[in-house]
Simulated scan of single mutants.
Amino acid sequence: MSKNLNLNQTNKHKYLREIFKLLAFIVIFSSCIPQKEIVLLQDKSENKNYENPFAPLDNITDKYYLQPNDYLFINVSTPDPKISEFFNQAQGNSASTQRNQNFFFYQLDDSMNIDFPYVGKINMKGCNVKMGKEKVQEALKPFLKEYSLTFKLASNTFTALGEFRKQGVVVMQKEQVTIFEAVAMAGGITPFGKQRKMKLVRQLPDGPVTYEVDFTDKNIVNSEYYYIYPNDLIYVRPMKAKQLGIGESFSIGIITTALALYLTLQTIIN
């Protein structure tokens, strides 16, 4: 009976050791982040799935089509200051009364109209910035012969969600912002962000479209995703390591602590 008891205790000790080894193995290796998940500009030419249908266009303002609630900077300048002031008056509810360096803010309504002083409503449906400027110029022809027109998109923002250090709406400091600059403006991606499966939601004239972008692939530089458009949404989902409750502070110290605990338990069992 004493032999059977000792045998049962020995088997129990072996069982506990194996359980602890298994738990330690799961904790350590489930928290390891493969290098291919975090290294940028990798050469993935064989898996390249990006196309660039916008290559013939010169800049981002040609690619982006105006949307409802966009704000526009519009200013008319003529040799006569009084005439200039007349056409730069803010009228209606769609024009802001705030003035900034002689530019007025005009908001596009749900029907893609702006209410321009004296001229009336101008529809911007299906227009990019260049085409919108041409529409305003066409509307001013019956009234002015000599003038200069400034026409710019004012609402240059994108949204960063998920595993960014700074989530929220981000103001674009210039018209041409690359996806790398956009990530940097959002504080960068945390170590637990799935950079290889980044989601990019883009508003197109026919409706929103969602793309999956491999942020680690250098071929993104030659793709239609290289530049961020106004109103784009970028989402980075978390890795499983974060879902297991392992934080950014995970390091080799945790591994050594686990080994020390194992050795301590083994000594107590023995």
Rank of each mutant, 00 (worst) to 15 (best):
S2F: 09
L5A: 10
N6Y: 08
L7D: 14
N8Q: 15
Q9E: 14
T10R: 15
N11V: 13
K12C: 11
H13R: 14
L16T: 01
F20D: 13
F20P: 05
L22R: 12
L23F: 14
L23D: 12
A24D: 15
I26H: 01
I26M: 01
F29I: 06
S31H: 02
Q42N: 07
D43S: 13
E46L: 05
N49W: 06
E51V: 06
F54H: 05
D58P: 00
D58V: 12
N59Q: 05
T61Q: 15
D62F: 11
Y65F: 15
N69Q: 14
D70V: 04
L72W: 00
F73R: 10
N75A: 08
T78I: 01
D80R: 01
K82N: 13
K82T: 13
I83T: 12
F86I: 04
F87G: 00
F87A: 06
N88T: 06
N88P: 07
N88F: 08
Q89V: 00
A90T: 09
N93H: 09
A95W: 02
R99C: 04
R99V: 11
Q101M: 14
N102H: 03
F104G: 01
L108D: 04
D109L: 11
D109N: 15
S111V: 10
N113C: 04
Y118G: 05
Y118S: 06
Y118W: 13
K121L: 05
Q137K: 10
E138M: 00
L140R: 00
F143P: 03
K145G: 12
S155P: 04
S155T: 15
G162K: 04
E163K: 00
F164I: 03
Q167R: 13
V169Q: 15
Q173L: 13
K174N: 09
E175N: 12
E175G: 00
Q176N: 14
T178P: 04
T178V: 02
A182K: 03
A184F: 06
A184Q: 09
M185L: 09
A186I: 11
A186H: 10
G188R: 08
G188L: 02
T190L: 12
F192M: 13
Q195A: 14
K197G: 05
L200R: 08
Q203W: 05
L204S: 06
V213T: 07
F215M: 08
T216E: 07
T216M: 03
D217Q: 01
V221C: 01
E224Y: 03
Y227L: 10
P230G: 03
I234F: 03
Y235M: 09
V236R: 08
P238S: 04
K240Q: 15
K242I: 11
K242N: 06
Q243K: 09
I246F: 01
G247I: 03
S249F: 01
L263I: 10
T264D: 06
T264Y: 00
Q266A: 09
Q266D: 14
N270I: 06
